[in-house]
Nucleic acid binder design. Sequence first.
DNA 1: AGTCAACTTTTTGTATACAAGAATGTGATC
DNA 2: GATCACATTCTTGTATACAAAAAGTTGACT
Lengths: 218, 218
Amino acid sequence: MEQKRSDIIANQIEELIFEGAFRDGTRLDEVQLSERFSVSRTPVREALLRLAQSGLVEHLPRRGVFVRQPGPIALMEMFEVMAELEASAAGFAASRMSDAAIQELKDVNLRCTAAVEENDTDKYYRENEQFHAILYREAGNSFLEQECLRLQRRLQPFRRTQLRLRGRLKQSMREHEQIVSALEAGDAQQAATAIRAHVAVQGEKFHHLMASLKTAAE
Amino acid sequence: MEQKRSDIIANQIEELIFEGAFRDGTRLDEVQLSERFSVSRTPVREALLRLAQSGLVEHLPRRGVFVRQPGPIALMEMFEVMAELEASAAGFAASRMSDAAIQELKDVNLRCTAAVEENDTDKYYRENEQFHAILYREAGNSFLEQECLRLQRRLQPFRRTQLRLRGRLKQSMREHEQIVSALEAGDAQQAATAIRAHVAVQGEKFHHLMASLKTAAE
DNA sequence: AGTCAACTTTTTGTATACAAGAATGTGATC
DNA sequence: GATCACATTCTTGTATACAAAAAGTTGACT
């Protein structure tokens, strides 16, 4: 499927924001961006409007669009909702997922363990994402799946820093195993509780997240 | 705040789709629409791209945008997610909401009861929406609140038909009261369960929803 | 010096023009 | 009659042009 330029540009601008190339509150100038990407204002505008819809930037009519990095409170809120969505997904999956899918989760966990032993954060990150993606899929509700993926994508840059915490990888692994156990037992309640704890930002993770916000703002 | 034309047009097209002016799968022609609203293609395009993001229409690159009325399965999925989101909101609200807010809910319920007695479906509908809006707000998570409002808005046209069910108003009222009781007791678990049952499409409601879909397709 | 108003510049929103891909129609061939 | 190649037409995507609103600037007046 051929992509149109405005889509590509939207992704590129998104990437730039994630990378922190634009500080919070920066106005994104249509002309500047169009020159940067060597296109006219039209595709840039479409890209910006799209990002505004996704909440990454704010569009003030007749004023321009401004980068809106989520503050500490907004981030906590988003993680809280992510935890709830994943809890719902896990709850459904507990009764809906197939044995084959459970095996899939176990396989991913094996690769996760390998990544932990190799201390390969990037690999762990990828496999971890896969783990969650399977869960969303097995909830048997593709609308929920899409919503989960959407929010996951939004939180991606912040989630990544979380894993850099010392010992976090091993802890995360143990949680994965608990989740699989609950799913295998078909215990919706426990699966939901386990994943809620897995996703939630609390304890050490909270401080780490706050610290990463400070550095990003500099 | 001054609105721009593309926003107004987006809302109007949305309204037209909700009203069923466009059948499922209809291609929305940019030129036709621009003539209809007496504007150029540009604002129409922006409006259509926005609607595509919200999922109301599908945008196939270089093909056009097509109305995507949710089918039975998609609808059930969306209601299921709505129930989960509201359950989460209610759960949080159980421990976070103030006494004043509980009183607010009770007041709304009084007006709901009045609407039931007067058999005023529209009034009931408005007050019911208010009831849920208060709940979203009192979850103490504005991101969750926004997500709830977004999905509620999306399901609005289908929710409305649900209330036309015989005896549904009274049943709905009883459920509201149970929810308030649970919230007053600070019982997150029960509040979540109660609202899940309230929102979920099951039993009679399911058949009614299916029937409404058939008539809409004709 | 500070403030306010009129003017200039900049920037967004909309209209129009052009380019390129998709859909459609026609005719030739089997 | 069916199918395929080619040409035409239509529609989307992008560029450019223009209009109108906001921001910025200059200068008079207190």
